[in-house]
């Protein structure tokens, strides 16, 4: 019984970390989509209207799936989308690193101008593992 409680506490803690990570990432982007659009453009993958679409929609998606981890009705799909987004972010950072781009990550408001790609990728890998853990628990509990 104690073991179950302990596991539930760990799952809740991991869940809260993910919620905080996505909530804090989304808010500054929602407040300043222009700055986020500049960060998106600096990856040199998207241009023009596509950049503006990403700057408009992605922060809201991050916010909703971040908070969605706490809402039983959309928990699983939120975890799935978080995993998908983290894979995309890791791929983008790796691509920028390989191309030698010296850019701002655009992940959080307080980040420095130049990105430390190793730290970024490590952080996203840790979040990815956390999201997979939460998804596995939710899936099992749902079944």
């Amino acid at each position: 019984m104690d073991k179950m409680k302990c596991t539930s506490c760990i799952v809740l803690l991991v869940r809260l970390v993910l919620v905080a990570a996505f909530f804090l990432a989304a808010l500054p982007k929602i407040q300043d989509p222009v700055a986020f659009a500049i960060s998106v453009e600096s990856y040199r993958i998207l241009t023009g209207q596509a950049v503006l679409w990403v700057a408009l929609v992605l922060p809201w998606l991050e916010l909703i799936i971040g908070l969605g981890l706490m809402i039983p009705k959309i928990r699983r799909t939120s975890s799935l989308l978080i995993i998908l987004l983290l894979f995309i972010f890791i791929g983008l950072h790796a691509s920028a690193w390989i191309r030698g781009l010296d850019i701002s990550c655009g992940c959080y408001a307080t980040e420095s101008v130049s990105s430390n790609y190793f730290l970024l990728i490590s952080r996203n890998c840790a979040l990815l593992i956390a999201a997979v853990f939460v998804l596995a628990r939710d899936w099992r509990n749902h079944a």
């Binding site: 989509p33 503006l52 408009l56």
Partner: peptide, 8 residues
């Protein structure tokens, strides 16, 4: 609210 530029 006019936070974001209209993409289209």
């Amino acid at each position: 609210l006019g936070y974001a530029q209209v993409p289209w």
